[in-house]
């Protein structure tokens, strides 16, 4: 039961983008160790701008 709730919570976090920075850090650590990662604020700025370029919502 508790495990299910944790899974549900992490799904919500992922869906909403709440954990986007943590995922970015993980991706960064795996693929781009040579450069320092962006700060949370800088990352979020970039992430949000990227998210809203193009057709993202429908009728």
């Amino acid at each position: 039961m508790f495990k299910k709730l944790t899974q549900f919570w992490s799904a919500i976090r992922q869906l909403s983008g709440d954990d986007a920075y943590e995922r970015y850090l993980q991706h960064h650590a795996e693929h781009h160790v040579e450069t320092p990662p962006l700060t949370r604020e800088a990352f979020f700025k970039q992430w949000q701008d990227g998210k809203w370029t193009g057709v993202k919502r429908c009728c």
């Binding site: 979020f44 700025k45 949000q48």
Partner: peptide
């Protein structure tokens, strides 16, 4: 709030 007060805390 999301951008400046608590950056990235979407939920």
């Amino acid at each position: 709030y999301m951008r400046h007060i608590r950056p990235g805390r979407v939920l």
